[in-house]
Amino acid sequence: MIKRFPLGSAWMIIAAFLFAMMSILVKNASTHLHMNEYELAFWRSLLPALVIFGTTLARKKTLKTPFFWGHMQRSMAGTMALLLAFYGLGHLPLATSVTLNYTSVVFIALLSIFWLKDKPSLKTWVALLMGLAGICLMLKPAFASDRLLETLITLSGGIFTAFALLQVRELSLMGEPAWRIVFYFSAVATIVSGIAATWFGWSHLTSESLPYIIGIGVAGLLAQLAMTHAYHVGQKFTVAALSYLTVVFSAIYGVIFAGERIGWLEILGITAVILAGIVSSVPERKVAKR
C-alpha cells in the first residue's frame, strides 16, 4: 500500500512551474520566431514518445493493448486539445490562454451531466456555475476587442481536454497503466502534428530556435513526470489545487516580463476558474450508513 503524505504534493509545484515554462517557451517561439502551433506540438510530443518507447523496451514491457480504439479516441481528443492550447498561446495573452486551457473542469461537469447522465452533486453545481461565470467574465473583454474568435477557438480546447480526461479515467479503470496512455497520446500527437506541420510549413532549425525546441520537449516531459509522481505520493485534493499554480506562474511572467496587461474582468474570471477547479477537486463527503 502506497503511503500518501502532504509533503509529496509539493511535486505539483515543480510540475506547475515546468508546465508554465513550457507555455512561456511556446508563446515566445510562436510570437518571436513565428513557429506555428503544429510544429511546436510536434516537438512537444516527440520526446515523450521516444523516451517512453525506449524505457518500455529496456524494461521488457509491451505496448500492445486490448483497448486500442479507446486509446485512439483519447489520443485524438488530446491532440486536438494540445493544438488548440498552442494556438491560444500564440494569439492571446499568456495568463488568458493558460486559464482557458484549465476550463476543462467546466466541460467535464457538463459532459458528466448530459453525456454520462450522472446526477450532479451540490459541489458539482457550485464548480460548474463558478466556472461558467469565470468564462463569461473572460469573454466579455474579448467582445470589446478583436480577439473574440481566438478566445473561442482556445476555449474549445477545454472541451477536447475534458473528453480526453474522461477517456483517461475509463482506460485507467480498465487497467491500462499511465505510461501506456501517455505513449499512445504522444505518438498520435507527433504523427498528426507532423502531418499538419508539413502541410502548413516547417520553420528552419537554427541556433535560435533549437533551445526553444529542446526546452519545450524537456519541460513538457519533466512536468508530466513530476505531476504523475505528485499524484502517486501526495494528497489528491492538494495536488489538484496546486496544479492551478501554472496559471499563477504564467500570469506573473506575462505581466512582469512580457509587459502584458490584465484587466479586472480577466483577473476575476481567472480567479473564478481557479476556484471552480479547486472546488471540483474537493472529495465528496460520504454519508455514513446507519
Rank of each mutant, 00 (worst) to 15 (best):
G134E: 05
F160Y: 09
L152N: 08
T238I: 10
L149D: 14
F53R: 12
L7A: 14
I13Q: 07
L221S: 07
S280D: 15
T96A: 14
A133C: 13
M130C: 09
Q224A: 07
K140F: 01
E170T: 10
L165W: 04
L92P: 04
H91V: 02
A226M: 13
R180L: 09
G8K: 10
L83F: 05
L110D: 02
L268K: 08
F67K: 15
L46N: 03
A219T: 14
M12R: 00
I108C: 06
N101W: 03
A85S: 15
L84A: 09
R74M: 12
A144V: 05
K123M: 06
A162E: 01
L122S: 11
E176A: 08
F249M: 02
M21E: 07
V282W: 13
K286I: 12
Y231D: 00
R59K: 06
R44K: 14
A10C: 14
L268D: 11
A226W: 05
T271G: 11
V247W: 06
D118C: 04
I216H: 05
A187T: 00
R74K: 14
G215Q: 12
I24Q: 03
V106N: 00
L171A: 08
T238Y: 02
L82W: 03
H71C: 04
V26D: 10
F107H: 11
P6T: 06
Y184W: 10
P66Y: 03
H91C: 07
P141Y: 00
E266M: 03
M72R: 00
I191M: 03
L47M: 04
I191F: 01
L46W: 04
F68Q: 13
K289N: 00
L165V: 03
T190F: 06
L47E: 02
L110F: 01
L165F: 13
S97N: 13
M80Y: 03
L210I: 14
M80F: 10
I159R: 00
Y184R: 13
P211F: 02
G88N: 05
P93Y: 05
A197W: 04
S104D: 12
P48R: 01
S9R: 08
K60M: 10
G90R: 13
I213C: 07
Y87A: 04
L210H: 12
G78D: 02
K64P: 07
V106I: 12
R4H: 10
W264V: 13
A197N: 04
L268M: 15
L148W: 03
A144N: 15
T103S: 15
L18D: 12
F185D: 07
L63Q: 11
G78C: 03
F114P: 11
L149K: 15
A226E: 02
L210F: 12
M1F: 06
P211V: 01
A10M: 15
H34E: 09
K60Q: 10
W179S: 09
V168N: 05
A164P: 01
R147G: 05
A15P: 02
L84T: 07
L166N: 14
G263Q: 09
G263L: 02
G217M: 03
G131K: 02
S112F: 06
T99D: 05
T124G: 05
I24C: 09
R169N: 08
L25P: 11
R180E: 09
L149C: 14
E208W: 00
V282A: 15
A95K: 01
M174Q: 13
G277R: 02
R44V: 04
M1S: 15
S97M: 08
